[in-house]
Simulated assay, not measured.
Amino acid sequence: MSASHPFSELGPSLLLDMLESTGLHPDGRLLALNSYENRVYQLGVEEADPVILKVYRPGRWPKDALSEEHAFAEELAAHDIPMVPPLAFDGHTVGTHAGFYFAVYPRRGGHAPPLDDADTREWLGRLLGRAHAVGHARAFAHRPAMDPQSMGTGSRDFLLGEGWIPGHLASAYASLTDDLLVDINAAFDRAGGWSPIRLHGDFHPGNILWTDAGPHLVDLDDCLTGPAVQDLWMLLSGDRTERTLQLGDLLAGYEDFHVFDPRELVLLEALRTLRMMRYAAWLAQRWHDPAFPSTFTWFNTDRYWEDHVLALREQAAAMQEPALSV
């Protein structure tokens, strides 16, 4: 397998063989689904419902970390939290085939939640409160922890060190991110002794499948240890008044099942800034994968980097504002 094209060998024959190695019998139907960090496919199965085959990016996670992700999904499901865990074959959920780790999931449908509805937000708050009560019960051993250094400093140093920032912006980007990192670390200091818990880690609307019966959760690929607010802030949007209202609805449901530490609210804009910095570095680090240049055609243009610097300047101002409160 070419190091520059991690998934270049994932042709239909290999994917069908991969699924067949679990003991399932594919019927030849294969549909690629939108996914970039990993590769995800829907495969038909003889005399059974189709399944979802997730092929992990080589070198990203060791097997222990994948097993721990799957165990967390199973633990959530065992507590009646609507999580979609992977299927087990011979007692194992992480498969290995042709040098790839993979997992097989039951197919579940749904659409993004209607976040403009207060009842929906309170329902999602209850769901998160229940999930965080489970996440608080024990610790990860092999998953990462929320770390401003790796997400912020590491991302910044990679982009500058590898020459991704255009020359006319490099000085401004370096100075701006110096200041941002000071403010981010100060926010973590002000938040005090919040309790780290196991989190979904990437709790945006695209990872919530909504149905008439309510939500169910997918994709724990970024699960990690961190502050509870990491799983809340991506559900907020709009101006300060709108975000305050949305946060109140979420926490009204959340605190039915788990106590929220309000000191964590000072981290909200710091976490948003870290995600923005990490996202730019992630795109750059994956640019050798042919799926990225063909999909993210707007990336690595002067306009992209100019907009990125502008957005980070806006975050610098946002981090000077008082934290949201409810």
Rank of each mutant, 00 (worst) to 15 (best):
A71K: 06
P50N: 11
P62H: 08
S67T: 05
V51W: 11
A65M: 12
R60W: 12
R57I: 05
P58V: 00
V51Q: 00
P62C: 02
S67N: 14
A71R: 12
F72H: 02
D49Q: 15
K63P: 01
E47Q: 15
A65H: 03
P58S: 07
E74I: 10
R60V: 14
E47R: 14
V55T: 01
P58N: 15
L53T: 02
E46K: 15
R57C: 03
V51R: 06
I52Y: 10
R60Y: 02
V51A: 06
K54F: 01
W61M: 07
D64C: 03
L53W: 00
A71Q: 10
P62F: 03
D64R: 14
K54T: 01
H70E: 02
K63G: 04
R57M: 05
D49W: 11
F72E: 01
E75C: 08
E75H: 05
L66F: 00
R60P: 00
D49H: 09
P58F: 07
F72Q: 03
I52R: 05
V45T: 02
P62M: 03
A48H: 09
K54D: 00
Y56P: 00
L76V: 12
A71F: 02
H70R: 09
G44F: 06
R60M: 04
V45G: 10
W61F: 11
E74D: 12
L53F: 05
E75G: 07
W61R: 11
D64I: 10
Y56I: 00
E46W: 12
A65W: 08
R60H: 10
V51C: 11
E68G: 04
F72M: 00
E46H: 12
F72P: 01
Y56Q: 01
A73P: 01
E69F: 15
V55A: 09
A48K: 09
P62Y: 03
A65F: 05
E69W: 11
W61V: 02
I52A: 04
E46Q: 15
G59W: 05
K63I: 12
L76S: 12
A65G: 08
G44N: 10
R57G: 04
S67A: 14
A48R: 09
A71I: 07
P58L: 01
S67D: 11
E46C: 14
R57A: 08
S67C: 04
A73D: 04
L66H: 01
E46M: 13
F72W: 09
E69N: 05
R57Q: 03
D49N: 13
D49I: 08
A65I: 12
P50G: 05
D64K: 13
G59A: 11
L76D: 10
R60A: 04
H70F: 10
E46A: 15
R57S: 12
V51K: 13
L76E: 13
D64G: 04
P50A: 12
L66M: 07
L53E: 02
Y56N: 02
P50H: 05
P62E: 07
E69K: 11
E74L: 13
S67Q: 13
E74F: 09
A48I: 04
K54M: 07
A65N: 13
H70W: 03
S67E: 15
L66I: 02
K63T: 11
H70S: 04
V51I: 12
D49Y: 11
L53Q: 00
W61S: 01
E75Y: 02
Y56S: 00
D64S: 10
V45M: 04
